[in-house]
């Protein structure tokens, strides 16, 4: 005998197996969708043969499956949202192959939406700029990864060479610090 709604339980459990997110399991989602379609056929059958109790049970399995998949997708989406806020508008390469193309698309749309909201509230405030209370205007950073020349809004052109230390404006490099490219030393 087949046990229904086992697969959606497995899907939700998968979320716990990874530090960030497990690879997107489209195969299992497709299997669950097939199971739902199959169950739907059975509900119709049971109703036709006036077996109402069985129909209620089968419909319950469908709802449970659906709830499981939605919880899975919702949890993943919320992880993407925190990634956007903490890490800036790009997905780090080692994260991107854990995601489905729809999720990458969602990340991009969400990122634009957040940007739009932030700029509408006040032109001088970026709501994702400071996640901890700012203590100094300038911070000392050590460069962990080679960046080379970049242009910052106030300081102008700055050269970040690997393993050098520099004094820079906090707000301009905040996202680089959070990405781990720069490390704050003081």
């Amino acid at each position: 005998m087949q046990i229904y709604a086992e697969k959606s339980k497995k899907l939700v459990r998968e979320l716990k197996t990874s530090k960030w997110l497990p690879p997107y399991n489209s195969g299992l989602i497709n299997e669950i969708s097939t199971e739902i379609t199959e169950l739907h056929g059975k509900v119709v059958e049971s109703l036709a043969s006036q077996n109402d109790n069985l129909a209620v049970l089968q419909a319950g399995c469908i709802e449970r499956n659906k709830r499981g998949v939605l919880a899975y997708l919702n949890y993943r989406a919320s992880k993407l949202e925190s990634l956007r806020v903490e890490n800036g508008p790009t997905i780090p390469p080692h994260y991107s192959h854990q995601l489905s193309s729809d999720e990458v698309d969602y990340f991009r749309k969400y990122s634009a939406l957040l940007q739009e909201y932030s700029s509408k509230v006040c032109e001088f405030v970026d709501i994702t700029a400071d996640l901890v209370p700012p203590k100094d205007l300038f911070i000392e950073v050590r460069v962990k990864e080679e960046i080379g020349d970049i242009v910052l809004p106030v300081s102008g052109q700055v050269t970040f060479k690997k393993n050098t230390a520099q004094l820079v404006r906090r707000e301009e490099v905040a996202s680089l610090v959070r990405q781990g490219v720069l490390k704050q030393t003081k």
Binding site: S33, H40, D105
Partner: peptide, 14 residues
Amino acid sequence: LFKKSFLLKIPEEF
């Protein structure tokens, strides 16, 4: 996101 990833794959009633 929900529709594209999942809901469009199941019968319309649900």
